[in-house]
């Protein structure tokens, strides 16, 4: 994972300090920009048939090779922790989808977890 920028504090999207010195959280505009960059990166991964861009060495390399530019944009517009989170979430979401499909194919029924009280 040598290519991953470990120090992310110098990114342009880095929040500015607030009135009492702490760093401000990303606001709605920042978030929208981040989501946009994320979606562009994931679209690129989809085009190149790459699912995992973070957990395995091969995946990281493949993503870097095919969508290096989109990945840079992604890192630029989102906090590093968010980038990691979204990349991992992509894998988890895919696995979840597959599990649901498998269960449905086997004739099982997916029931969303409910509170124990109603319905």
């Amino acid at each position: 994972m040598g290519w991953l920028p470990l120090g992310s504090s110098e990114k342009p999207a880095c929040p500015k300090p607030s009135a009492d010195g702490a760093f401000e959280a990303p606001n709605r505009t920042n978030r929208a920009k981040c989501y946009e960059a994320r979606d562009a990166f994931f679209e690129c991964l989809d085009r190149n048939n790459i699912l995992d861009s973070i957990n395995t060495k091969g995946g990281v390399a493949a993503a870097q090779k095919a969508c290096g530019k989109a990945d840079q944009e992604f890192e630029k517009n989102c906090a590093h922790s968010w980038v990691e989170y979204f990349k991992k979430q992509r894998v988890v979401n895919y696995q979840k989808e597959q599990t649901i499909r498998r269960i449905e194919a086997e004739g099982g029924e997916i029931v969303a977890p409910q509170l124990p009280t109603r319905r």
Partner: peptide, 14 residues
């Protein structure tokens, strides 16, 4: 650690 009153105020007003 990160959510000081000022940060919260800025964040929640949105």
């Amino acid at each position: 650690a990160r959510d000081t009153p000022a940060v919260l105020k800025e964040y929640l007003k949105e």
